[in-house]
Design a protein around this nucleic acid. Structure first.
Ligand SMILES: [Mn+2]
Ligand SMILES: [Mn+2]
Ligand SMILES: [Zn+2]
Ligand SMILES: [Zn+2]
Lengths: 146, 146
DNA sequence: GGCCAAATGAAATCGAATTTCACTTTCAAT
DNA sequence: ATTGAAAGTGAAATTCGATTTCATTTGGCC
């Protein structure tokens, strides 16, 4: 880790040490606020900006990437070997991943057709998860809250 | 149009008349700001909030939907019969659409597997369009600007 | 015409993201 | 070990699109 940073010209600091570890230990898809809370349980002197900057840095060195679901909060997740898509529950905000190798093999030819240099592929299914649907049956019948 | 609004309990107003028309005449993927500029060329007394609310309303009555690409600006586009994905150029922000019926037929079984109630499917290819790549060859060799 | 809920526009507010800035720390070269 | 330039830090300020507030106006129905 220290090496990875040094080779790219960044310095290691106690804050980064802690934040990086916390990020790797955290579950998938953490927001800055999520990680900030986790981190400050261990060292409450660490600032929000440092957490934010560290997450950006983790992306820069290629260990993570941003996940934007359009709900106003940027999440971060480790880069995975296999590309995956997301099932995103609009009600409980839960994310579930699914394998998308087969979809990637459909997307790549499309990019080629348009002579597009691919930097990232995104596939999402937005809707209601099973738990939320069940929960909704016992209350309102509309589904989403507005 | 007037009918569509009335049946859903909304009133028609000169502002809506103008904004709706401008939206339908505008190209694909307009932001509030885009449409606001277009509209105020015709009637400069129309407020930004009214344009914003009208776009939301157009979505509510089912004629359009929001498109969020994670660049901080919400765009709006007419609902199309055929589902389509987007090629999004990170440099010039241009959007190109592609047919994704075949991808939808892969996504639907996935949703079913997870007993997920689908509200929307999203497929995006982020990267550099042909024009931007060409343009970049004549200047820097890195690609994206930071 | 008159009512009144809905709509409007300007301004205020919200909130996540990002930047600023004065101060501190890292680390490579002494 | 010392040290100084460059990089990092934390608190606060700023940004900026999205959204709400509120006083006033208007559309649709009697
Ligand atoms: Mn994921
Ligand atoms: Mn489109
Ligand atoms: Zn859910
Ligand atoms: Zn481009």
């Amino acid at each position: 880790m220290r090496e990875l940073l040094r080779t790219k010209g960044y310095k290691m600091t106690p804050q980064r040490e802690l934040i990086f570890r916390a990020f790797l230990e955290a579950g998938e898809h953490v927001s800055v606020e999520d990680l900030y809370q986790r981190v400050r349980e261990i060292d409450s002197s660490i600032g929000y900006s440092t957490v934010w900057r560290s997450l950006k840095l983790i992306c820069t060195v290629g260990l993570a990437k941003e996940v934007n679901l359009g709900d106003g909060v940027t999440r971060y997740e480790r880069i995975t070997l296999q590309p995956h898509g997301h099932l995103y529950c609009l009600q409980c905000k839960t994310l579930t991943e699914f394998e998308m190798a087969n979809i990637v093999s459909l997307l790549e030819p499309i990019a080629r057709t348009y002579r597009f240099q691919v930097e990232g592929l995104k596939c999402e299914i937005h809707g209601l998860c099973e738990e939320c649907r069940k929960r909704n049956q016992n209350t309102d019948s509309t589904g989403l809250t507005h």
